Deep mutational scan, measured.
Amino acid sequence: SGEEFIAMYTYESSEQGDLTFQQGDVILVTKKDGDWWTGTVGDKAGVFPSNYVRLKD
C-alpha cells in the first residue's frame, strides 16, 4: 500500500531503475527517501524526483 500522487510534469529518464511517467499520471508512492521517492505506475516501478509530483486530492 502507499499514497497516491499526481504527476505535475512528465519525467523521462534512461537510467536503470528510474520510474518514467507522463503529466497527469497517478503514482502510488511506496517509499519516500529524501528527494528521490519509490513508486509505481501501472506495472512499472522505480525511483523518481519527488518535486515532480503532488498529493492527489
Rank of each mutant, 00 (worst) to 15 (best):
Phe5Gln: 03
Tyr52Lys: 04
Gly42Phe: 05
Val47Arg: 13
Ile27Pro: 09
Asp25Lys: 00
Lys32Ile: 03
Ala45Gln: 10
Gln23His: 12
Gly39Thr: 00
Trp36Glu: 10
Glu3His: 05
Lys31Val: 08
Asp33Arg: 13
Trp36Phe: 08
Gly46Asp: 00
Asn51Thr: 13
Val53Asp: 02
Gly39Ser: 00
Ser13Leu: 00
Ile27Ser: 04
Tyr52Val: 05
Ser14Met: 11
Thr10Gln: 08
Ala45Phe: 03
Glu4His: 05
Tyr52Cys: 08
Ile27Leu: 07
Trp37Lys: 03
Ser14Asn: 14
Lys56Ala: 07
Thr40Gln: 14
Tyr52His: 05
Gly17Phe: 02
Asp33Cys: 15
Gln23Ala: 14
Gly2Glu: 09
Gln16Cys: 10
Leu55Met: 09
Ala7Ser: 03
Val26His: 11
Asp57Ala: 07
Gly17Tyr: 05
Trp37Arg: 03
Thr10Val: 04
Val41Ser: 14
Ser50His: 03
Gly17Gln: 04
Met8Leu: 11
Ser13Met: 01
Thr40His: 11
Arg54Trp: 10
Gly17Ile: 07
Ile6Trp: 02
Gln23Asp: 07
Ala7Leu: 00
Phe5His: 10
Lys32Pro: 07
Val41Met: 13
Gly42Lys: 04
Thr40Ile: 06
Gln23Ile: 09
Tyr52Gly: 00
Phe48Tyr: 02
Asn51Gln: 06
Glu15Tyr: 11
Val41Thr: 09
Gly42Leu: 08
Ser50Cys: 10
Asp43Glu: 10
Gly39Val: 00
Asp18His: 15
Pro49Thr: 03
Leu19Lys: 01
Lys56Pro: 12
Asn51Trp: 08
Thr30Val: 07
Ser1Gly: 13
Lys44Met: 15
Gly24His: 06
Leu55Val: 10
Gly34Tyr: 03
Gly2Met: 07
Val26Leu: 13
Val26Pro: 09
Lys56Tyr: 04
Val47Pro: 00
Asp35Phe: 09
Trp37Met: 11
Gly17Val: 05
Phe21Ser: 02
Phe5Trp: 11
Lys31Arg: 09
Gly17Ser: 11
Ile6Pro: 00
Phe5Pro: 01
Gly24Asn: 06
Gly24Tyr: 04
Asp18Glu: 13
Glu4Gln: 12
Lys32Gln: 15
Ser13Phe: 03
Ser1Leu: 12
Gly39Glu: 00
Phe48Pro: 06
Val26Asp: 11
Gln16Tyr: 13
Glu4Leu: 10
Ile6Ser: 08
Phe21Tyr: 01
Val26Lys: 12
Gly2Ser: 14
Ser50Trp: 00
Val53Ile: 04
Asp43Trp: 04
Lys32Ser: 06
Glu3Arg: 06
Ile6Leu: 08
Val26Phe: 05
Gln16Ile: 10
Trp37His: 05
Leu19Thr: 01
Ile27Asn: 07
Met8Gly: 04
Gly2Pro: 07
Gly39Asn: 00
Gln22Ser: 13
Gln16Val: 10
Val53Pro: 02
Asp25Cys: 02
Glu4Phe: 07
Glu15Ala: 14
Thr40Met: 15
Gly34Leu: 05
Tyr11Phe: 12
Gly42Thr: 02
Thr38Gln: 09
Thr20Asp: 07
Glu3Gly: 05
Ile6Cys: 07
Val47Asn: 08
Gln22Thr: 10
Gly2Val: 08
Glu3Thr: 11
Thr30Trp: 12
Ser1His: 09
Gly34Met: 02
Phe48Arg: 02
Lys44Trp: 05
Gly2Ala: 11
Asp18Val: 12
Asp43Asn: 14
Trp37Ser: 04
Gln16Met: 15
Glu12Pro: 06
Thr20Pro: 10
Gln23Trp: 03
Asn51Lys: 11
Gly24Leu: 01
Val47Thr: 06
Leu28Arg: 14
Gly2Thr: 15
Asp35Ile: 11
Tyr11Val: 01
Met8Ile: 06
Thr40Gly: 03
Ser1Ile: 15
Gly17Asn: 12
Ala7Val: 00
Gly24Asp: 12
Gly34Val: 02
Ala7Arg: 00
Asp57Leu: 11
Trp36Arg: 13
Tyr52Phe: 15
Gly39Pro: 00
Thr40Trp: 14
Val47Trp: 08
Val29Glu: 03
Ile27Asp: 10
Ile27Cys: 02
Leu55Lys: 06
Gly46Ser: 00
Ile27Tyr: 00
Val29Arg: 02
Glu15Gln: 15
Glu4Val: 06
Val26Trp: 01
Ser13Glu: 05
Gly46Cys: 04
Ser1Arg: 06
Val26Gln: 10
Arg54Ile: 04
Pro49Glu: 00
Arg54Ala: 11
Gly2Trp: 07
Gly17Lys: 12
Thr20His: 10
Val26Cys: 07
Val41Gln: 11
Val26Ala: 11
Glu3Leu: 07
Gln22Phe: 10
Gln22Leu: 08
Gly2Asp: 09
Val47Gly: 09
Asp43Thr: 14
Asp57Tyr: 10
Gly39Met: 00
Ala45Asp: 13
Val29His: 02
Asn51His: 06
Thr10Gly: 13
Gln22Ala: 11
Gly24Lys: 00
Glu12Ala: 09
Ile6Asn: 05
Ser13Tyr: 01
Phe21Met: 03
Glu4Asn: 05
Leu19Arg: 01
Lys32Thr: 11
Ser50Pro: 07
Trp36His: 06
Gly46Leu: 02
Asp57Ser: 12
Asn51Arg: 10
Tyr11Asp: 02
Lys32Met: 15
Gly34Ser: 05
Lys56Arg: 08
Ser14Pro: 09
Lys44Gly: 10
Ala45Thr: 14
Thr20Gly: 08
Asp35Thr: 14
Gly46Ile: 02
Asp25His: 00
Asp25Pro: 00
Val29Asn: 05
Glu12Thr: 10
Thr20Ser: 13
Ile6Arg: 06
Ser50Asn: 15
Leu28Tyr: 07
Asp35Glu: 13
Trp36Asp: 06
Ile6Phe: 08
Asp35Pro: 14
Asp43Phe: 05
Leu28Cys: 11
Gln16Trp: 07
Asp18Ser: 15
Gly24Trp: 01
Gly46Lys: 00
Gly24Gln: 08
Asn51Met: 10
Leu28His: 15
Glu4Trp: 08
Ile27Gly: 09
Thr20Ile: 07
Glu3Trp: 05
Ser50Phe: 05
Asp43Met: 11
Ser14His: 13
Val29Phe: 00
Lys31Cys: 15
Ala7Lys: 01
Ser13Lys: 05
Trp37Thr: 01
Glu12Cys: 11
Val26Asn: 06
Gly39Cys: 03
Ala7Met: 00
Lys31Ser: 14
Val26Glu: 12
Glu12Ser: 13
Gln23Tyr: 08
Phe5Ile: 07
Met8Ser: 12
Lys31Glu: 14
Thr10Cys: 04
Thr30Gln: 13
Gly42Met: 05
Ile6Ala: 07
Gln22Trp: 05
Ser50Val: 04
Ser50Asp: 03
Gly34Ala: 07
Gln23Val: 12
Gln16His: 14
Asp43Val: 11
Gly34Arg: 09
Trp37Asn: 02
Ala45His: 15
Glu3Pro: 04
Phe21Glu: 01
Thr30Glu: 05
Glu15Pro: 04
Thr10Leu: 00
Asp33Tyr: 13
Phe48Asp: 03
Val29Met: 00
Asp43Pro: 10
Asp18Trp: 07
Trp36Ile: 08
Gln22Arg: 13
Gln22Gly: 08
Asp33Glu: 10
Lys56Met: 15
Phe21Leu: 03
Lys56Asn: 10
Ala45Cys: 13
Val53Cys: 07
Lys56Val: 07
Ala7Gly: 04
Arg54Met: 10
Lys32Asn: 09
Thr30Ser: 06
Gly42Ser: 08
Val29Pro: 04
Asn51Pro: 02
Ser14Phe: 06
Asn51Phe: 07
Ser13Asp: 03
Gly34Gln: 15
Lys44Tyr: 13
Pro49Leu: 02
Glu3Cys: 07
Val41Tyr: 08
Lys32Phe: 04
Leu28Asp: 04
Asp35Val: 09
Asn51Ile: 05
Leu28Ile: 15
Asp35Ala: 12
Ala45Val: 14
Thr38Ile: 02
Gly46Arg: 02
Leu55Tyr: 02
Glu4Thr: 04
